[in-house]
Design a protein around this nucleic acid. Structure first.
Lengths: 268, 268
DNA sequence: AACAAGGTTTCGTAATATGGAACGCAATAA
DNA sequence: TTATTGCGTTCCATATTACGAAACCTTGTT
């Protein structure tokens, strides 16, 4: 609900569009549906206004109202638009089969992420039907996480410019997520240099306690890093030794396969 | 861009929300990005207005602007919301592995669809990386098709009430998509009775020339049909005999597996 | 049957979004 | 180099548009 802390809010926004965006976010959260009253209370808007905005959203297909309960749910138009995003960011589609194979071979949860506005955003996630560790990861496609606390984030920072790294440090303040999170700028920079050298990053319970990840960079046709992929799992299974011996290689292999599919020729 | 023809437009819609929805749809279409001028010309809105609306959308994360070309693209927020739709319509997630297996086993493109406002909407689509037939199907997740011209549509109608069928006939007029499309109400009703009896439907190039499909119903825990799934492929490969001998059974099997996963016990 | 709790509609008001016009900024042409 | 063109961006006076308080339904509950 909170806006990103760096980009200050422009002054000429359209009120009803802002409100509608907040409503969609709210309605999206409750998978059992949301009533007008709830929206009205949570967003501090009069019932009438909420009703008018929701009616418009229903008419446009962004929201659907259950005829029995009168509750509102996200509409199928959003499914369509979400899929169109995937076709505009074509690395998602191209990488999918490789990620699926990586998830299969490694038996762990696989993510693909990009850096946007000083945070990482997951653009794909493949997980087993039944998560064997019993731990459910909090990530979702589209959700954001600080870049300093996860493997994909550290990979993406490692291949970013000094300026970008500095901007992330300034904007986010390197928030701690667990006792292991790297929060010191100098230490982070040192760590990033190591990541750049070894061409992968490990998250040793730095983002969620009990979860370890390995991530590797994906290069695009221009030789620039365009995303990072990772495999994550419960620390008892994904041990440091296991990462070193097998998982690291599997992730790096998948990342380089995707790079090739994207047209990367090894020339940076 | 045209609104659905049955539900007449309510009078109290919020103008800027309508405009924003149209802008998103437009921006979603062009995978190479869209400029303000294009939007302004196509939607007949002044440049200033378009800029203001787009700025708001960028701020909310629904749209992203390429810093080099200044072109606008759909934003990652829509990816997030699209995924939330999937988690609100949980049959999509539950069915996914079964559909994937069906696609694998049959070697054909697999769809899952529901009926909404007198048309069918695809809620999932699984296709091979390289479509062997060379024919690309025009369907997309979230796209709509007349129910009378495709196998999933005929299945869904077959298990709908008289009233609903009548409503579809009235609202859509059973539009022809190919010379094979059923456009006569009486003939359609007869056909639906047959579908109900045999528990599957065939689309014999009724929606796209050169494409045949077989569809079967998916039942939810209350015993009602909640969706339909289908396998589709080029007519030269998906022959009537092949449907009869193998594909039909594979699709029906997958549909009933999904029904079980959804809690269907055979009680209607 | 009365009540409560939500959803829906109405309507007078002014705050809000509007859009025409001016400005800025690149890229291309002269 | 200096015009020119084609966009994106910003400004601001205006009235249209969305607002929100309150009244009104509808449904389910005690």
């Amino acid at each position: 609900m909170e806006r990103n802390n760096i980009a200050q809010k422009p002054s000429n926004l359209v009120q009803s569009v802002e409100r509608v965006a907040n409503i969609l976010e709210l309605v999206g959260r409750n998978s059992q549906g949301t009533g007008i009253r709830d929206v009205s209370l949570i967003l501090n808007l009069p019932k009438g206004t909420v009703h008018r905005l929701l009616s418009t959203l229903v008419y446009m297909g962004y929201v659907r109202q259950d005829s029995a309960t009168k509750n509102y749910f996200l509409g199928l138009k959003l499914l369509e638009l979400g899929n169109l995003v995937t076709s505009q960011l074509d690395q998602i589609k191209i990488a999918e089969p490789v990620l699926r194979r990586l998830a299969e071979d490694s038996g762990e949860t696989v993510h693909m992420a990009i850096l946007e506005q000083n945070e990482i955003v997951y653009i794909n996630k493949i997980e087993k039907e039944i998560n064997a560790g019993g731990l459910k990861m909090s990530s979702r496609v589209g959700s954001r996480t600080p870049a300093n606390s996860c493997a994909v984030g550290k990979v993406l920072l490692a291949y970013s410019s000094e300026d970008e790294v500095e901007s992330v440090i300034q904007a986010t303040g390197l928030p701690p997520r667990t006792p292991n999170t790297i929060t010191d700028p100098a230490q982070l920079k040192e760590h990033l240099a190591a990541v750049r050298k070894q061409e992968y990053a490990v998250d040793d319970e730095e983002n969620e306690l009990g979860i370890r990840c390995v991530a590797a960079p994906v290069f695009g046709d221009k030789g620039k890093v365009v995303s990072a992929i990772s495999a994550s799992g419960p620390a008892f299974r994904v041990t440091k030794r296991m990462i070193q011996d097998t998982l690291r290689k599997e992730v790096m292999r998948a990342a380089s396969e995707i790079s090739v599919l994207l047209g990367y020729s090894g020339v940076k």
